[in-house]
Design a protein around this nucleic acid. Structure first.
Length: 906
RNA sequence: GGGCGAUUGGCUCAGUCGGUUAGAGCGCGCGGUUCACAUCCGCGAGGUCACUGGUUCGAAUCCAGUAUCGCCCACCA
């Protein structure tokens, strides 16, 4: 079979993905699977991408890494599950749709819940195929038959069941609490969705007048000054607090002050939470709109007065300002206080403001009745799983982050005042009884008073999108039903995701998985770094600066994109996306393609075109063939180690190096000699060719998880053995053969000699095409190799004739009158050039200069090596192998120095 | 305020357990129409491994500190 002359990734890739689908090899139990059913399954868990999104470079990288792992496992005959999915992404999807609606002059409110959801379902139906098609273009070998969506019926059932169990176990509760309210999204959000943003605000100091106990009226001449960054919250103040040990205010504790505008009298209380050095040492307390104040309020039994509506306008409780936006109200209040003489000061103040991750609105803490998940016991279980090693986080250093977050975790507000998502399966009866039910149709009656279903109303809120995502590893396998898939593929093996969602997603999966299934949902957490722009900025969909991986695939192919992304993939370390790397990867694919074309075209005539694979005949292998087989064995072992260590970038480097430098630059060049030079038997030529085929086959298998398309295409064209399947994707992962260190050393010595000759020629500016005679001497032991590879030296060093001398003396005697270039390569030595022809003065000077340079560096190295050996502490304490190495090295260098000196006539 | 990461040739990055002469790609210089590949081939230049101190026979690597950049966490109004 032949490969097309030109490598065009686009032509190759689409057709190959089709072939994989037709062969049904993606599913662990597919018709084309060669999985060993008794082997331990390998389950990779990928974050389901947002259904309304499109593939960005980060997805591409993660898909590439996940696909790499699953393909590797598949080739090792493990039942490998890579389950595709989509996330409904509640708040993110609503955010996207709301913007579209705004463009149409509609809104969430104008449509109403039912029509809005209908519109969302249509929208999602449109966007859904996009992401799936894009994952396919990256080459992800996903088991499409198991495609799942976090809003499908199976997921819905899992959500109801999960919540019902948590409620029954006292781990889900409904309570009035301070939540993070986003006025833009009109919903509460979890702590994680609040982004702390440093900003310069103002700190105002204002006076609250003390109440005259006798008259019950505020005293115009007596006040307590409080400092605040949020004057508008005055309207919700229910106390003023000072530190109990603060002498300035000790006498005032227990007195009352008049809150302006709302004309409310509130107590001055003492509480150690107050920082005496800050501001005036007195702080106004607004329990409904500040976390600290909320806690203080609880301690002192203060009233909580919510003064905002859902879009953060002042409500009727902020009477004179009702209807004003919070910032308008702030400005108005400051003006009025100033006019009244109650504004003491106003100065700029550095502070941290919580903003909504989604809409960037300033988050308003508000008291709401919400559903919470009690996280402490769940977090403890998650910590136990990582501490015991049951689940391992890569890289290790994220353990600390994990520990810190799970140790200080607060309860998780899971209800959202949104529409797109799973509705909370809680029903309320007119008496306020709560009934939580996993039944799709809801409960038959109130669990407390028995009122019929008709009298109950379901909670209008939905779940935080991460609640359903948190069930992903098992909800996708049919939980809570006891399905075959669940038994077989749960818990999963590796969960891969970006470190930016370790809390949002990974921690929730761990907590919910442990609680609901009793098992940690995966044994390894592989945290990828993020992809950044060449300038180092984080790519962001909302900023619109994301690089489109699909364009990259169009230009250079999915294989090149995958290689480039995996090449830079160190767990937990960000990588910059660079076009150079992409091109380099594309070039590598091209190199491989052309190497394969050469191999296929070099088939000796004695081998029939469609011949089945045979192993090279070991009795007729030359040193180059033995060298190549040994180097391939080395590479297989190194790749295996790197794979086991999750060092995927290392895998790409190993293969790049092995394929380009060893196989193409050296292996193929050496093989060409035996394949084309006369004087070789058919058997020898065949053995050489089969060696090349064997090496290529092994490299293709090793590289397949990284570059699946091009390797599959090439593999299709090379001869296969009887046990091979029709597709590389299900072919067996290679087993490392035996090393042949002797052959490696011998061939390396010859390659060094060739390099030395090329170097000397280049430095002397000799025409590359010019044939020059070479006289050389090699150590006795290298004799047979030299004979075998003599033609290779000729070809690769452009040397003709090559004359071998048995001793250095003979070499020197034979070349004394010549003006040749001296080459000293290890123990071998050569003289390149025409004997007796003479050389120009400048050529001779250049030759001397080159040798002088070599001498200088050789002497320097010799000196430092000797110095080390003279150090008795070194010889006494260093491992013997290191000392012996240094001794050998010193001898070699001394020899080299002597020879260079002799050559230079010293 | 606490924690983490990064810092290696002009650029982007490797560098395992501390062990000879710190690697690669891109870029740069010189030279190439070798019948697989110019998306290529050959040769070369280019690095006080951020800084300071320590441990060690030996440090890019381990320890302490400093600097710069970046990230995460955090309830001083």
């Amino acid at each position: 079979m032949d490969l097309p002359k030109a490598y065009t990734p686009r032509d190759v890739e689409g057709a190959i993905y089709e072939r994989w689908l037709e062969a049904d090899v993606f599913a662990p139990d597919g018709a084309g699977s060669r999985a060993d059913p008794t082997a331990q399954p390998f389950v990779i868990i990928q974050p389901p991408p947002n259904v309304t999104g499109s593939l960005h470079i980060g997805h591409a990288q993660r898909s590439a890494v996940e696909d790499l792992m699953v393909r590797h496992a598949r080739m090792r005959r493990r039942p490998a599950l890579f389950l595709p999915g989509l996330d409904h992404a509640s708040i993110a999807a609503q955010f996207v749709l709301d913007r579209i609606l705004a463009g149409e002059g509609e809104s969430r409110q104008s449509l109403g819940r039912e029509r809005y959801l209908e519109r969302m379902r249509r929208f999602v139906a449109e966007t859904r195929p996009t992401m799936l098609a894009q994952q396919r273009r990256v080459g992800a070998s996903l088991d499409w038959g198991r495609l799942r969506f976090t809003m499908d019926d199976v997921s819905a059932k899992a959500v109801r069941e999960a919540f019902t169990r948590l409620y029954a176990d006292g781990l889900a509760y409904r309570s009035e609490a301070l939540v993070n309210w986003c006025p833009g999204c009109r919903t509460s959000v979890s702590d994680l969705e609040v982004v702390a943003t440093p900003e310069t605000g103002r700190l105002w100091t204002i006076r609250y007048h003390l109440i005259d106990d006798a008259t019950g009226a505020p005293d115009p001449a007596a006040w307590i000054a409080v400092a605040t960054t949020r004057p508008e919250t005055i309207l919700g103040d229910t106390a003023v607090a000072v530190h109990p040990d603060d002498d300035r205010y000790r006498a005032l504790v227990g007195r009352r002050v008049r809150i302006p505008f709302v004309e409310r009298d509130v107590p001055i209380i003492a509480d150690p939470v107050v920082e005496r050095a800050f501001g005036t040492g007195a702080v106004k307390i607004t329990p409904a709109h500040d976390q600290d104040d909320f806690e203080t309020g609880k301690r002192h039994d203060l009233a909580s007065i919510d003064i905002f509506d859902d879009v953060a306008r002042i409500n009727e409780r902020g009477a004179p300002f009702t209807g004003l936006d919070r910032y308008e109200a702030r400005a108005r209040i400051v003006d009025l206080l100033e006019a009244a003489g109650d504004l003491e000061s106003s100065k700029p103040h550095e502070m941290v403001i919580g903003r909504c991750q989604r809409s960037n609105d300033v988050i308003e803490p508000r008291i709401k009745t919400q559903w919470f998940v009690r996280t402490k016991p769940l977090a403890d279980a998650a910590l136990a799983a990582t501490r015991s090693g049951r689940t391992r986080i890569l890289p290790d250093r994220f353990d600390k982050v994990w520990e810190h977050w799970l140790t200080g975790i607060r309860d998780w507000n899971v209800s959202r005042q949104l529409w797109w998502g799973h509705r909370i399966p809680a029903w309320y009866c007119p008496d306020g009884h709560v009934t939580v039910s996993a039944l799709e149709a809801g409960p038959d009656a109130c669990a407390t008073c028995g009122r019929p279903a008709g009298a109950l109303t379901q909670d209008p809120n939905i779940f935080d999108t991460w609640f359903s995502s948190g069930l992903w590893p098992f909800s996708t396998l049919g939980w809570p039903d006891d399905t075959d898939d669940l038994r077989r593929f749960y818990p999963g093996t590796v969960m891969e995701t970006g470190y930016d969602i370790i809390f949002f997603w990974v921690a929730r999966m761990m907590m919910l998985g442990l609680q609901l299934t009793g098992e940690a949902p995966f044994s390894t957490v592989y945290l990828s770094g993020l992809i950044r722009l060449p300038g180092g900025e984080k790519m962001s969909k909302t900023k619109g600066n994301a690089v489109d991986p699909l364009e990259a695939i169009d230009e250079t192919g999915a294989d090149a994109l995958r290689f480039a992304l995996i090449h830079g993939a160190t767990p937990g370390i960000d990588q910059k996306f660079s076009r150079e790397r992409l091109e380099n990867a594309r070039n590598f694919g091209n190199k491989l393609w052309n190497a394969a074309r050469y191999v296929l075209g070099a088939r000796p005539a004695s081998i029939a075109a469609g011949a089945a694979r045979v192993a090279p005949d070991p009795t007729v292998l030359g040193p180059a063939e033995r060298w190549l087989r040994s180097r391939v064995a080395l590479t297989v072992g190194a790749v295996d180690r790197a794979m086991a260590d999750f060092a995927f970038a290392e895998v790409t480097r190993l293969l790049y190096e092995a394929i380009w430098n060893e196989f193409c630059d050296q292996g193929l060049e050496l093989a060409k000699v035996r394949l084309t030079a006369s004087g070789h038997t058919d058997a020898e030529r065949e053995a050489t060719w089969w060696t090349l085929v064997e090496a290529l086959d092994t490299y293709l298998r090793l590289l397949h998880p990284v570059m699946p398309f091009v390797t599959e295409a090439i593999w299709d064209a090379i001869p296969h053995g009887a046990d091979d399947p029709g597709l590389l994707i299900v072919a067996d992962w290679p087993v490392a053969g035996a090393r042949d260190l002797g052959a490696e050393a011998e061939v390396e010595a010859i390659l060094d000699l060739i390099r030395g000759i090329r170097n000397a020629r280049a430095e002397a500016h000799i025409e590359p095409a010019e044939w020059l005679p070479v006289d050389l001497v090699v150590p006795e032991t290298l004799g047979p190799t030299l004979i075998a590879l003599g033609p290779a030296i000729e070809r690769l060093a452009r040397a003709r004739p090559v004359r071998r001398h048995l001793t250095r003396e003979a070499l020197h005697a034979a070349t004394r009158s010549a003006s040749g270039l001296a080459v000293i390569a290890g123990e071998a030595e050569a003289v390149v050039g025409r004997g007796g022809a003479g050389a120009s003065d400048e050529a001779a000077a250049a030759e001397r200069a080159r040798l002088e340079k070599e001498l200088v560096s050789a002497r320097a190295l010799l000196a430092s090596t000797r110095a080390r050996l003279e150090n008795t502490e070194f010889t006494a304490k260093a491992p013997p192998a290191v000392v012996e190495g240094a001794i050998g090295r010193a001898a070699e260098l001394a020899d080299q120095v002597a020879r260079l000196e002799a050559r230079l006539g010293r």
